[in-house]
Design a protein around this nucleic acid. Structure first.
Lengths: 138, 138
DNA sequence: ATTTAGTCTATCTTTTTTATAGGATTTATG
DNA sequence: CATAAATCCTATAAAAAAGATAGACTAAAT
């Protein structure tokens, strides 16, 4: 399961995407609309900003906004950023690979092979679907 | 990612499946062969036994054994048993569903829809692949 | 009776997750 | 330039989960 952090991030990003035309959006507004703890959300948005997904403006009239159009932000990127590996096992992770401690040879491990396929099928969706694809409004 | 518990369970089950013909297998043997803490493994095998996946025999000549042929034990079952939901979000889980706290209507939520597809693609593999499919020996 | 091996439950430690606090910094504007 | 508004940043706390260990109990074989 995705962590609350990542779930909140998705909902916040959706809100930002649905309001791209309104300039910077307040953390407090997102928190209220999406029912998220404001202080927790603050940290999440900051992290997204430091990763280049979001931009921000301080002071009056400030807030957060998307740095790229929604259609260019893949869901996989958000998950990896906040949650880490998408794969079910370290030994099949593309971005967070770790050697298997329990089997002799990954190359001939059936578990490794099947979990690799699960990863591929998930990535096929998560790498191609973007923020744009999960919006309610168009 | 799957927990260590579930990862260990898979490796133990593989070992049991590869030695079905040898009668009950000792916890200590599995622990040694698969490089798993024996006491931790003890708890895991007990849980698998209490769920009907494994059987056991006490005393000399005792140990654990599979209750069903490897081809009848789906990978999804093991994961759900020890790790819980396979879905990435509570609101798309078939077995551990929880209502989404952050969106107005799941029926029109794009995130819900995409994550439902990710779940389906994972289940298509995990429900159909069995212990038999992940063995090294045939 | 003794040894062997699983059963059961409790506890402990560590890590991760979730959340909160509060001062620092930047910006708009009157 | 003072003030208010908003994000920035770091620390910490609280709770939950994960990972691991301990030890007494029960059942079976010989």
């Amino acid at each position: 399961m995705l962590s609350k952090k990542t779930q909140y991030a998705f909902h916040a990003l959706i809100y930002l995407a649905e309001n791209v035309d309104k300039g910077p959006i307040l953390i407090s507004e997102i928190a209220q609309e999406k029912n998220i703890s404001i202080k927790f959300l603050e940290n999440i948005l900051l992290e997204l900003k430091n990763s280049g997904i979001l931009g921000s403006k301080k002071g009056k009239g400030g807030g957060y906004y998307l740095m790229k159009p929604p259609k260019e932000i893949a869901l996989a990127k958000i998950i990896r950023l906040l949650d880490g590996p998408i794969a079910l096992l370290p030994c099949v992770s593309l971005n967070y690979y770790e050697r298997c401690e329990n089997c002799r040879d990954e190359a001939v491990c059936g578990l490794n092979e099947v979990m690799g396929r699960v990863r591929d099928s998930a990535l096929k969706i998560l790498e191609n679907k973007t923020l744009k694809d999960i919006l309610t409004k168009n």
